[in-house]
Amino acid sequence: MEKSFKDLHVLRGVDFEVARGSIFALLGSNGAGKTTVVRILSTLLKADAGSVDVNGFDVATQSAGVRESISLTGQFAAVDEILTGRENLVLVARLRNLKDPGRIADGLLERFSLTDAANRRVSEYSGGMRRRLDIAMSLSGNPPVIFLDEPTTGLDPQSRLEVWQAVKELAGRGTMVLLTT
């Protein structure tokens, strides 16, 4: 895959394959093109050259199939701080037209060790709890592929460990995880 912005070649000859149930990390300094790769893989940006497949779907010609297969979590937790953790999860499940959003929310709260905080407003959550909730929201509907762009940005060491544990659990359940750091 290749991508340029005017005269600046951001990506040249990027080529990789990631197996289901594995964790693939793109490592690099700021400006190295990691987020650009994620944006192309998630159909938010078009590559200039090359072919890109995600979960068997061509990103350029089958973008709807790609979007149904993935979940994307950006560099900063995209949670509604006015809502409770459970309400955030129910909202996402409803937006994805999933059956029994309350059951789905409860399962994700348990999976990410947030059950005790389920009915607290997210504004009261620690950074690690917000990030785990953000990842849990991404998993509503069990997408086979998840992209985590800088999942530990701004977190303290304990919160980072919690996020890395959640990432390991995702892969252990068969989810393909691509992360940048």
Rank of each mutant, 00 (worst) to 15 (best):
L178W: 02
F16K: 09
G13M: 01
T84H: 04
D7Y: 08
Y125V: 02
L91V: 06
G65T: 06
A64R: 11
F24H: 12
V145K: 12
G50E: 07
D15A: 13
S29L: 11
E110P: 05
G172N: 10
L11M: 02
P101M: 01
L27H: 07
L170I: 07
V59H: 05
R131I: 06
I146C: 13
T36D: 11
A78C: 02
P157Y: 00
S4R: 14
G141I: 01
I40N: 06
F112C: 02
K34T: 03
R160P: 08
G28Y: 04
V66T: 01
T61S: 15
S138F: 08
K34P: 05
A25E: 11
F147K: 10
L133M: 06
T73D: 08
A93S: 12
R96Y: 07
A32S: 15
R20T: 14
P101Q: 00
F147R: 09
A117R: 12
D48W: 01
G107H: 01
V167P: 11
I70Y: 03
V90N: 08
A78P: 04
L114P: 02
I70G: 04
V10K: 10
N55V: 07
A93E: 06
E87A: 12
A118W: 02
E68R: 14
I135Y: 00
Q62K: 10
E150N: 05
L98A: 13
A93M: 05
L98I: 12
G174A: 11
R160E: 13
W164E: 13
R94C: 11
G33R: 04
V90L: 09
T43D: 06
P144K: 08
Q165K: 12
L139R: 13
R160C: 13
F16R: 11
T36Q: 12
